[in-house]
Computed example of a mutant assay.
Amino acid sequence: MAAAGRQARNETAVWLLRLAGTLLLAALLAYLIGLIGFIQSLEKKAPAALAPADGIVVLTGTPERLSEAMGLLDSGKAKRLLVSGVNPEVTREELRAALKADQALFDCCVDLDWRAENTIGNAIETATWAQENAMQRLIVVTSAYHLPRALRELQSAMPEAELTGYPVFQDQVRLDDWWAYPGTAKLLVSEYTKYLVSFARTYLAPPVPGS
């Protein structure tokens, strides 16, 4: 009887290990399929035409993002620009000088947010800025790989807003043949993982209309 009991426990343990292995393999496969789909869905070029909006928000991270956002403001795509997530050690004048922005345009139409420390913070600060300026239509400027998560967070923070993504590209991030570049591959895996966390968080705590 004791031997039979031990054999049954061993068989159960083996079955549980096989089940765990199968589930782990299935989860890994699902993750890889999702990752490939995520990368394929990323914008590969900037939109050919962009309708004017009430405001533009750019999430800091690379100089290219800021330059593109200033270009959109200068071309009249919106009347105001929010630069969200500015380093607290960077002054307004230092940022303007780094961008080589027109003094009059920068002084009249560019707002800086020094509080946001991450994408969630960007969304909160942008929602506050948009509400204070009675804005409903925003152009969101950030890196192409970051855009899906940024739009997800901003839409969660301001569900009634109309958001248009404007992807920015960097030469060192190769989206077409990403698998051949370890740095790009690592970046995209990290961003996809963050996107899954963001999706789960905003799905489990959906925005309240009118909030």
Rank of each mutant, 00 (worst) to 15 (best):
A144G: 10
I56N: 01
L42P: 02
L95G: 04
V189K: 04
L95A: 06
Q170Y: 07
D74V: 06
A157P: 02
G76V: 10
S156H: 15
E117R: 04
Y195R: 02
A69H: 01
Q40E: 13
A4F: 12
S198C: 10
L50P: 03
I36P: 00
T12V: 07
A78K: 02
L147T: 01
V208D: 00
E89T: 11
Y181K: 03
T12C: 07
Q136K: 14
V90W: 08
L112A: 08
R137Q: 10
L35R: 05
S67Y: 03
T128A: 05
K79T: 05
M70I: 06
I39P: 04
P182N: 10
T22V: 15
N10M: 13
A78Q: 02
A185M: 12
G61V: 06
L66D: 01
F169R: 04
A26D: 13
P159M: 09
P47A: 12
G34D: 09
P88V: 07
A130P: 02
R92G: 04
M135H: 07
L112V: 09
G165Q: 05
P63C: 07
S67G: 00
A3G: 07
V208Y: 04
K45Y: 02
A20F: 10
M1C: 12
P209V: 12
Y195Q: 11
D74N: 14
P52C: 09
L24V: 10
K100W: 00
L154T: 00
D107T: 13
V197Q: 11
D107P: 08
A161W: 00
L204Q: 13
E94W: 08
T126I: 11
V189Q: 04
A4Q: 15
G121P: 05
A200F: 09
L28F: 01
V57S: 03
Q136V: 09
Y145W: 11
R18S: 08
W129R: 03
A4V: 13
Y192A: 02
K100C: 13
R6E: 04
L112I: 09
L16Q: 15
W129K: 05
V168F: 04
G210R: 14
K77C: 00
N133H: 10
P207Q: 08
Y145G: 01
T62I: 11
G210W: 10
A49N: 09
A130C: 11
G121N: 03
V141T: 04
S156C: 10
I124A: 07
